[in-house]
Structures are given as structure tokens and as C-alpha cells.
Design a protein around this nucleic acid. Sequence first.
DNA 1: TTTAAATGAATGAATATTTATTCATAAATT
DNA 2: AATTTATGAATAAATATTCATTCATTTAAA
Lengths: 194, 194
Amino acid sequence: MARKIDEDKIARIKEATMQTIVEKGMESTTIAMIAKNANVSGGYLYRIYAGKQDLINELYHDKVNSLYKELESLVLLNQTSIKPLIKSFIKNRITYFLNEPNASKFFYQLLHNENFFASDEIKHKSADLILKIKNIGVASGEISKDTTVYQLHYHILVYAVDYINFTRKNIFEEQEVTINDVDKLTENILNILK
Amino acid sequence: MARKIDEDKIARIKEATMQTIVEKGMESTTIAMIAKNANVSGGYLYRIYAGKQDLINELYHDKVNSLYKELESLVLLNQTSIKPLIKSFIKNRITYFLNEPNASKFFYQLLHNENFFASDEIKHKSADLILKIKNIGVASGEISKDTTVYQLHYHILVYAVDYINFTRKNIFEEQEVTINDVDKLTENILNILK
DNA sequence: TTTAAATGAATGAATATTTATTCATAAATT
DNA sequence: AATTTATGAATAAATATTCATTCATTTAAA
């Protein structure tokens, strides 16, 4: 046996990647910067990831998967009304943003980047979940049956994430988003889908 | 006199820049790609722009400026109600998206990119416009006086642009956005701000 | 209980590759 | 012919990736 893998290094690389990309932007982020911020040698990354793209991809897909898992369990828990489902989902997004701003903004940036797209598996899952939510909402009278899948997809999965994270170009100095926004955002979505 | 500048070349460079970035993403777009797609020599760009960043910057700021000019004149035209103002603004965004998808998506991508941010001048203009709109809306009863500037800014300037352009990861094959969405989007915004 | 050999982790300087930028030259226009 | 536009191969600069080497830990023979 030889020495053990320092698991903390991997965690540090992940955190440094997200932080650097959020601070400097994708284009300006280099492997050298990430390694430096993670306090890890330049070549270490390549022991774990095939390269820069691979590293970012994995972080992104991890997050996408966990998001869908979360939504899946929320659907299972709320079979008669979409309001608690949406409210919980938004509450989690705001909590995540407040607790892990780098991870939250990292995901938000990739969501709007051409180079990162969902796998076919995720697309299927997503379509499936959206339809399940639609059925629940239509049955309970919370969603108009004319609401399109695109409208549903955007307003359930994207709208709140966008609203919460759109702070970079902030014109006003105040703290923009707090946990108090959960109710208002939930109400907005329910109004739109009605 | 010597030969004339081929103005068309500059237009081609602009179009190729937007198209390439929309298709390949910022990180993967190179000067060589842009020049090739524009049918222009590699070095030609540098006769007009100081470099890649300068080129992209100029395109972005042109668009931001024209957007604010448009909104400014809409505010002047609608001093008693915000509904027609918002409706016109959204109609223009959808028309733009349908007629010039590359330009529309290019702008949308930069809007969500850390490396591009509004100048102080634009920030001031923006703050000023948002407050003017708020005053009109509060006076007419269309906007609750509790609505924050952040809410106003996001829902007037970002929400519709995002909704319209969020098509890349499309799960369903259909054409997502059409001119028929103007009314629904307007109604959504007015409901949220009320 | 030492000691040393084996193993895999980790490093970072060297290399390869990619990509922006320059500039000597050619082409077009007056 | 004079002048400016335009080219694209050459160059410079930046950055990703490799890999020979070092280091830490474990195992087991002496």
C-alpha cells in the first residue's frame, strides 16, 4: 500500500473551480488559477479529470442530477397540489444561494452557456417530471390546461434560479435576495401558470 | 484616393462574431473562426478593433445602448400607464428574437456572463429609468408601492429576454416562442408587479 | 522492533498546443 | 504612380497537458 488519496484535495479543486469561474468568468479561468486557488499542484487535476472541460462538465452534471433528484422526491411528496412543491423548491434554491453562493452562481452561469447542455437522459427525466407536475396541477385546478410544457419548464425550473442569481450587474447596493422572497416568488409562479 | 473600405466586411465580422459565439460558446470561439465565417482575412479584424475582447465589447455595448434608448423613448410616450410600455418592449424583444436570432441570443448570453458588465453611465441611466417607470406605475395603480427596484429591474428588463431566449436545451422539439406570447408575458409581468 | 522495498500519490518544470496579434507584402482604386 | 485596403504567413504569448521525479505510507522480511 502507498499513501491515501487526500479527499480534501478533490473538494478543494471543486470549490476553487466554481469560485474562480464565478469571479473571473469561464473564458479567463485557467487550470493554473484553479490549481493555485485549490492549493494543489498543476498536474494533480489530471490524475482525477481528463482535463479542464471534463472537470467543469462533471461539476455541472452533478448539480443537474441532484436538482432533478430533489424535484423528483418533491413530486412524490406532493401528489395533490403543486403549491407546496413549488414553495419547497424555491426555498431550497434561495437557501442554496445564501449558503453556497459560488456553487449557486456557477450553476446559474452554466445554465446560460452554449457549451453545456443536458444529456438525453436528463431531457427525458425533465420532460417526464414536468408532465407529472402538470397533471397534478391541472387536476387540482392550479394549472390551466392550456399551459405549455415550455412555459412550465421555464417557470418551474429556470425563473426562480434566474431571479435569485441575477445580482452581478447590481445597480443598487442593497442585498437583493433574502429568504423572505420565497412567498412572493411562489405566488408569482402560481399566478403565471393559472 | 485609394480603394474604399468594404463596409460589408465589418457587418460580416459582426454577424460572424455573434453567430459563432452563439453556436460554439464564448470559450471555444477563436479569431480564426470568426474571420473564416466572415470570409475575411485573419488580420483584418485588427484594422478595426483593438482585439477580440474589444470587438465583443463593442457589440455588447451597442446593443445595451440601443435597448436603453428604446426604453427611454417608450417611457416618454407612456406617461400615464405602464401596460402599453411593457407590451411594446416585449413585442420588440420577440420580434428581434424571431428576425435576428443570433444577435438576440448573443446579447442574452453576455447578459449572463461575469466578464461583461454595465458601465457606470448605463447603471445610472438604468436606475433612473426604472424609477420613472415605477412612478408612472404607482400613480396609475399598476405597481404596488412595495415593489423593490430589484424586482422591477429584473421583471422589466430581464424576465422576458430570458424567457424568450431560453431555448437551447430544448426538451421538446416544437418552436417555443412566437409573437403570440406578447400578451401572456405582458400579463405575467403586470401581475407580478401589482 | 527495525529496516528496506514496494506502491501509489503528488509535484512542477518541460513540452505541446492553441490562439491572439503583427507586419511585410500584395491588391485595388484613384 | 501614389495611396490606402486587405491578406495571411510568421511570431509571440498564453495555457493545457505530460511525465520524470520525489514523497509519504504500508507491508513484511530480518
